[in-house]
Write a protein that binds this DNA or RNA. Structure first.
Length: 588
RNA sequence: GGGGUCGUAGUUCAGUUGGUUAGAACGUCGGCCUGUCACGCCGAAGGUCGCGAGUUCGAGUCUCGUCGGCCCCGCCA
């Protein structure tokens, strides 16, 4: 099939091109056959151009034009003409002109697609995923992919300008069963042995610091075999960063530079720096979350002091057990019905709270089921310390500290949604959350786990607490939060093998175990490891937020469903017995 | 592992208390139409009601199981 290659794209032609003889290649977007004249909207990823078949202009072309259907791939040759007065389409950038066709070649016919290739598509996601190649033909999705591409370029340019080196690290590596579940890859050559896919290139990038690379970054695929969410896929992309001879402040300012550049180049927005900071403890107390959404208020208030003398049993028990009484004011929600409040109570209980205490603020006091258990002083202090006004609703939860703060934080988000006070067009709210706890107690296994990872450096002044009160040790770890989403996390690492040994001891990891799991890293540190630290961005999440979407699947070309399936190629799939045999694997 | 929700034409949905031949819109196909751009008008085709049992004279509708989508909890160093 002979055809001429395009001289222009479908988004390109303007008044300047009038009377030129041009060639366009593309897909038939829509066809409007008026009996005599036929209009075709020809589409490629650059735009749409109207193509005209008129019998009096070219009989042969018009005959072929009649056969055209949606999504046919065609090459057309013709003359650019100014559209007749009154028929311009100002919605289209190319709308002042159209093409009078001299020659058309149908390069390929197409089946009727299972859904229309158009924006603001109303079709279920499983159909889109099964025919992802058609979904990606839509302008919406093409824009998302291009946005993502532009973000890669800005990121790479920024790090290159700042003397970072991009280095690829292995995708087949050693399994480290701390943290997320690994994807395993059986070795054919070494019977009974497995590679793991990296959860992150953490150890490699630290080794690169030992090697003297000083400033490293990588746009890198990572893999975690955990359950999915709207913002979590089993394979995802990180912007992985590590720097030598730095402290937290150096990381903050370098990353703030990156965010400034990204916001400027992608969104045309001037991000003000420095980005505000909040310690983990403060974030939990005020927002009940380590990734607070600051686009709205509903700040939580700790009420322990108000109820320190209370006779109300629920609160008294909480205080006796070093728990927390916390709550917030839902302003103007004093008219919530009993039914609505029951739904909220149910929501809170499902998250694990004992219950939800609500009070309507009236002109003459508090209206609540528990009001009779509270003294007048308590009621007055409660209203004063929460700064509540008549017409407001108070929502209060009590119980074990961290859990209760977190549940109330979820309720805060839920209320913001119900009250519709999250402005999607508001200025982006960025925030560093700092001073995470180094260790986290696990009731099930009755041991501490590293909240971040076992190479995270504690605050120097907290080191001695490692032996006495490990839960109190603060880490030199930080997350970057954008509008309630964790978009990056990192830490200053331990570069001193004695401190690392102490850390392993606190985690209950024996010397032998540490050697077995991380020996190569510990060995490397004996040969002159510089102080270093780094951070990793969840690139898909960042792209999702920049694109204004609610799911990272919208910015990933070929994502998995929430059960980890690919509906298009139907993976994961079974394999031949012969393949399994080669890998020395039997299915139980 | 658990909770919620959904599954009916190619697509998005409606479908009453369990009751005649399961509807609409868009799309598709055919006819008419020379300035449309969501073209218009006329007509037609198109259904394993996700799948499998059960209850019933009778199931899209009720029950149980199962598969799949989405959201959430757990999980995600």
């Amino acid at each position: 099939m002979k055809f001429n290659q395009r001289t222009h794209t479908c988004g390109e032609l303007r008044e300047d091109n009038i009377d030129q003889h041009i060639v366009l290649n593309g897909w038939v977007d829509t066809r409007r056959d008026l009996g005599g004249v036929i209009f075709i909207d020809l589409r490629d990823r650059y735009g749409i151009t109207q193509v005209v078949f008129e019998p009096s202009y070219n009989q042969d072309a018009h005959e072929i034009g009649k056969e055209l259907r949606g999504e046919f791939v065609v090459s057309i040759e013709g003359k650019v003409r100014r559209r007749p007065e009154g028929t311009e389409n100002l919605e289209l950038p190319t709308g002042l002109v159209d093409i009078m066709v001299d020659k058309i070649v149908i390069l390929n016919k197409a089946l009727t697609p299972p859904f229309q290739i158009k924006d603001n598509l109303d079709v279920n996601e499983d159909i889109r995923l099964k025919y992802r190649y058609l979904d990606l033909r839509r302008t919406d999705m093409q824009n998302n992919m291009v946005l993502r591409h532009k973000m890669y370029q800005s990121v790479r340019k920024y790090f290159d300008e700042n003397s970072f080196v991009e280095i690829e690290t292995p995708v087949l590596m050693k399994s480290t069963p701390e943290g997320a579940r690994d994807f395993l890859v059986p070795s054919r050559i070494h019977k009974g042995r497995f590679y793991a896919l990296p959860q992150s290139p953490q150890q490699y990038k630290q080794l690169l610091m030992v090697s003297g690379f000083d400033r490293y970054f990588q746009v890198v695929k990572c893999f975690r075999d955990e359950d999915l969410r709207a913002d979590r896929q089993p394979e995802f992309t990180q912007i992985d960063v590590e720097m030598s001879f730095v402290d937290t402040e150096d990381i903050y300012s370098m990353m703030e530079g990156l965010m400034k550049k990204l916001f400027k180049e992608i969104k045309g927005y001037d991000l003000q720096t420095p980005i505000p900071r909040l310690t983990f403890d403060d974030a939990m107390e005020k927002y009940g979350s380590d990734k607070p959404d600051l686009r709205f208020g509903l700040e939580m208030v700790t009420l322990n002091d108000v109820f320190k003398e209370t006779e109300f049993k629920v609160f008294k028990d909480t205080l006796d057990n070093e728990g927390v009484i916390t709550g917030f004011v839902a302003s103007g929600c004093g008219d919530y019905t009993r039914n609505q409040l029951d739904v909220l109570t149910d929501y809170t209980k499902k998250l694990g709270a004992g219950g939800l205490i609500w009070m309507r603020v009236k002109e003459d006091g508090l209206e609540a089921p528990i009001a009779k258990f509270l003294s007048e002083t308590e009621k007055e202090q409660l209203v004063a310390s929460m700064n509540a006004k008549p017409g407001d609703l108070l929502l209060i939860v009590s119980g074990p500290k961290l859990k209760t703060l977190s549940i109330t934080g979820s309720l805060r988000l839920e209320m913001a949604k119900r009250m519709e006070i999250i402005d999607k067009n508001s200025e982006p709210k960025l925030l560093w959350v700092t001073d995470f706890p180094l260790l986290e107690w696990d009731d099930e296994t009755r041991r501490y786990y590293a909240m971040h990872h076992p190479f995270t450096s504690p605050h120097i002044e907290d080191v001695e607490l490692l032996g006495t009160d490990p839960g109190k040790v603060r880490a030199r770890a930080y997350d970057l939060v954008l509008d309630g989403n964790e978009i990056a996390g990192g830490s200053i690492r331990i570069h001193d093998s004695k401190l690392q040994a102490l850390m392993f001891k606190s985690l209950g990891i024996s010397k032998e175990e540490a050697d077995h799991k991380f020996g190569f890293l510990m060995n490397a540190f004996k040969y002159g490891a510089p102080p270093h630290g780094g951070i990793a961005f969840g690139f898909d999440r960042l792209a999702m937020l920049f694109a204004g979407k609610d799911s990272i699947r919208e910015v990933i070309a070929f994502p998995k469903t929430s059960s980890g399936m690919s509906l298009m190629d139907e993976s994961p799939s079974t394999v031949d017995d012969a393949q399994l045999k080669e890998l020395h694997i039997k299915i139980r």
